[in-house]
């Protein structure tokens, strides 16, 4: 039989999926054990006990000076920024993406501009943002919005353009105006794509968030990572990286689940 025709059973698939995770953990454990055997005070690859201690310290022990639980306070600050910027980016992308996708005149006006703007490396603008908007929340949120909105607009505009022309013709023969077509034909079929688009932009959004927090902030997950870097606290950094990854994974799954729950006809399709 050809290799392309061998298909794993459910249990085999699950086992295979777990393999790389176990392998990475194993490699870490071996490396950590080897380094600790050489030097019990090694900070680069802390052992399980040290990591457990870090989790306990960051998540469950109030700070002696401020009484804060750092992990939760940082998470709250970061998710607030992320949520605000994702909300703004989504709203802009949906409106502009639909307009550009539906109306040839607006497409002629805006599409080339958006294509060029999406090529601007957002991190290079960060100093400008900090100078113009100050070091507060606004500049961080703006950075993320600038970073992900143009790509989301283009993605949604392409999705609108991808709608079969037949559907638009059919809607017109059913006496629908441009506005009605936008609300009843284009919007419902673009919204599911918005979820997928948002999902794909989560990665860049986190990147911009952590970059902004690393440079100037007094709270947040990225702030903490770059703060404890000075003390070579790999135990805290690893804990935070794992936590951020977990948050991102949960967001991913939640977005997929929401999409299918709200738009049942998209089940099993690659939107």
């Amino acid at each position: 039989m050809r290799w392309i025709n061998y298909k794993p059973s459910r249990i085999t698939a699950l086992t295979l999926a777990l393999c790389p995770f176990i392998l990475v953990l194993l490699a870490y454990a071996i490396g950590s054990a080897a380094r600790l055997a050489d030097n019990p005070a090694d900070k680069l690859l802390p052992g399980i006990a040290a990591l457990g201690d870090a989790i306990n310290r960051m998540a469950f022990t109030p700070d002696v000076r401020t009484g804060e639980l750092f992990l939760w306070a940082d998470t709250l600050a970061s998710l607030g920024r992320l949520g605000a910027s994702l909300g703004i980016a989504t709203a802009i992308a949906l409106v502009v993406g639909m307009l550009v996708g539906m109306f040839p005149y607006l497409r002629a006006l805006l599409a080339p501009f958006i294509a060029v703007v999406s090529m601007v490396p957002p991190l290079a603008l960060l100093p400008v943002l900090f100078i113009v908007m100050g070091l507060g929340e606004v500049s961080k949120i703006t950075l993320i919005v600038i970073g992900i909105t143009p790509i989301m607009i283009r993605d949604l505009a392409f999705k609108v353009l991808d709608l079969p022309h037949e559907q638009l013709v059919k809607a017109q023969t059913l006496d629908a105006s441009s506005f009605q077509i936008a609300m009843r034909v284009v919007l419902p079929q673009t919204l599911p794509r918005l979820f997928t688009c948002l999902k794909l932009q989560l990665g860049p959004a986190w990147l911009f968030l952590i970059a902004a927090e690393a440079i100037s902030s007094d709270s947040g997950l990225g702030y903490r990572i770059f703060l404890v870097r000075r003390y070579l606290s790999m135990d805290v950094i690893f804990t935070y990286v794992a936590w951020i990854t977990l948050l991102a994974v949960i967001m991913n799954v939640a977005l997929d689940w929401l999409r299918v729950a709200i738009f049942p006809w998209t089940r099993g399709t690659a939107q």
Binding site: L174, A176, S177, Q180, M183, R184
Partner: peptide, 12 residues
């Protein structure tokens, strides 16, 4: 769909 769209340009 058609019945809902007919005779108006803003009703959804």
């Amino acid at each position: 769909f058609g019945l809902e769209m007919r005779g108006s340009s803003t009703r959804i």
